[in-house]
């Protein structure tokens, strides 16, 4: 995991591309829809969430691809430690460089859309809970499509359906708090998804990697 962080720092541009992609996608919406504050405020949570999911999917390709090409992945499979633990470390490092910047940038974008302070807070919490789950689930897809032709498109087809619950509860939490219903229910469901993903996704990813390297 430490190694992945070091590598990411030496390849800062990759991190920044993901972040800028996120910002640009979000900024396109006001241009497409028009500058009415009321509408923008209404769609803001959904827009930020969809953009976050697209951006993290863009980064997904890099999760195992480099290690697969230079043979490090083989050595990971041959390590005596359980593979799922190594996978978990890798995914968390991946999240720290691709997911965390998005989370930190999101409130700023929310402000552009005229969101209230309370809405921003809930947005932040929902992203903190939701984006790691997205990285974990995405890792399964990335592992399955390693080295497959057209893998980039295929991975979206595989993982987007699995992202939908996260999206529904993530955007739903913000919406619920804006309309005054309280976001606790949505947020606790998001937390449950994250907990489930933490338990099962590394294991499934490890199994997928073994299959892909066979």
């Amino acid at each position: 995991m430490k190694r992945d962080l070091i590598l990411a720092v030496r390849r800062m541009s990759d991190v920044l591309t993901t972040l800028f992609f996120f910002i640009i996608v979000v900024s396109l919406f006001p241009l497409g829809i028009g500058p009415e504050v009321e509408i923008l405020r209404m769609i803001a949570p959904g827009v930020v969430w969809v953009a976050a999911i697209l951006a993290s999917m863009l980064a997904l390709g890099r999760l195992f691809e480099g290690d697969y090409r230079d043979g490090t992945l083989e050595q990971m499979l041959l390590a005596p430690q359980p593979l799922s633990v190594l996978v978990l470390g890798k995914v968390l490092a991946h999240w720290a460089v691709s997911g965390l910047p998005l989370v930190l940038m999101a409130p700023l974008l929310g402000l552009q859309f005229g969101m209230t302070a309370e809405g921003l807070g809930v947005l932040l919490v929902s992203l903190v809970l939701g984006t790691p789950a997205i990285s974990l689930i995405g890792a399964v897809g990335a592992a399955l499509t390693l080295g497959v032709r057209g893998g980039g498109v295929l991975v979206s087809l595989l993982v987007l359906p699995l992202y939908i619950p996260v999206l529904i509860f993530g955007a739903g939490a913000v919406e619920a708090s804006v309309t005054g219903l309280g976001a606790e229910a949505h947020l606790s469901l998001l937390g449950a998804i994250l907990a489930l993903a933490l338990c099962f996704a590394p294991w499934a990813t490890a199994a997928a990697l073994r299959i892909s390297l066979d």
Partner: peptide, 26 residues
């Protein structure tokens, strides 16, 4: 096991590479 691919990261130095692969190997 040493395969065709050296399991080396181009961005890291030889010393760093060795220490990482050995850490992986326990």
């Amino acid at each position: 096991y040493l395969g065709h691919l050296g399991a080396l990261k181009g961005d890291l130095t030889g010393v760093e590479n060795l220490r990482i692969t050995e850490t992986l190997a326990g």
